[in-house]
């Protein structure tokens, strides 16, 4: 007699906890061939609001951590992902209908990208910052700093690589994120959240919402306590309106990208959500 399987409940990830949507709503996540895979939480604007609160609370600690420390924490995630490759390969195979070798390649890519970004945490300041030779007796230095809370609409056509490619660079600099997962492919995102929850990433640094990007994105775009908006996966939404909403508080915005190169790893993705701070200090002995 075969064993009765234990299906997994996919919930939201907010402030290091896994709540259901406050609205009580769920939606059916279907596989590539239309079969039922799971119920995912259908987050509401209030969940988005709670996620921003959690992300804001986490900014101070995460941004204050040393680059070396953040690099290690991010690397640790890659280690954990490596140990759970099988789970992700299975989820991607079911969700995207790809072969297991293709799914495997995707998981490998996601892990490698995570490692690539982890390595930047203690280096991007050196590359993007600089000492400035001003014409006066002043010490003058420019350094990039995290911009704060970043809201992300993750790429919609990718389960894991797209999600990682959007989230990891924002974390490197010390931002915290509220990310709306792919609406159709949310399961890997939640599984990744489970990895994050057991890693050393402090609660609130990454907050994952599942559900309708079209419903939630406007609330995040117009939220005054969100500093930046990554619309990489918002190409199918009314993203121009989201940009207009974001302009109200002068948020930094990344435009939508499409295709396999969406959110290609780049230093620009890290530095784009930083602010350059220039510090002057007088310099003279007598």
């Amino acid at each position: 007699m075969s064993r009765l399987a234990v299906p997994k409940t996919y919930k939201l990830y907010i402030g290091g906890k896994f709540p259901r949507s406050e609205s009580g709503r769920v939606y059916e996540v279907l596989g590539a061939s239309g079969e039922f895979l799971a119920n995912a939480a259908k987050a509401s604007r209030k969940d988005a609001r709670d996620a921003v609160v959690a992300a804001r609370a986490a900014v101070s600690g995460w941004s204050k951590a040393t680059g070396y420390n953040r690099g290690q924490v991010l690397y640790r995630i890659a280690e954990l992902l490596e140990g759970r490759r099988a789970q992700f390969i299975e989820e991607i195979t079911l969700a995207e209908g790809v072969s297991s070798s293709e799914a495997e390649a995707q998981v490998d890519e996601a892990i490698d990208r995570w490692i690539w970004y982890a390595g930047w945490a203690d280096k991007y300041v050196q590359v993007a910052g600089n000492a400035n030779a001003v014409s006066g007796p002043y010490f003058n230095i420019s350094v990039p700093e995290p911009t704060g809370v970043v809201a992300i609409v993750a790429p919609q056509t990718s389960s894991l690589v797209g999600f990682v490619s959007a989230v990891a660079p924002a974390l490197v600099a010390g931002n915290t994120v509220v990310v709306i997962a792919s609406e159709a492919l949310p399961l890997s995102a939640i599984s990744l959240a489970e990895v994050l929850a057991t890693s050393d990433v402090p609660g609130g640094v990454v907050n994952v919402l599942t559900g309708s990007p079209a419903e939630m994105a406007p609330w995040l775009a117009s939220h005054a306590d969100v500093n930046a908006l990554d619309l990489v996966g918002a190409g199918e939404l009314d993203w121009v309106q989201l940009q207009i909403d974001a302009a109200e508080t002068l948020k930094r915005v990344f435009p939508p990208e499409s295709g396999p190169d969406a959110a290609t790893p780049s230093l620009a993705r890290i530095v784009g959500f930083t602010e350059t701070k220039t510090v002057w200090h007088t310099k003279s002995l007598i």
Binding site: A128, P144, T147, P169, D230, V232, Q243, A246, A247, K251, R252, V253, F254, P255, P256, E257, S258, G259, D261, A262, A263, T264, S266, A268, R269, V271, G272, F273, T274, E275, T276
Partner: peptide, 14 residues
């Protein structure tokens, strides 16, 4: 897109 959005509203510091 490829540059990670240096155009648009992205911070030019990026």
């Amino acid at each position: 897109a490829g540059a990670g959005g240096t155009a648009g509203n992205a911070d030019s510091a990026g």
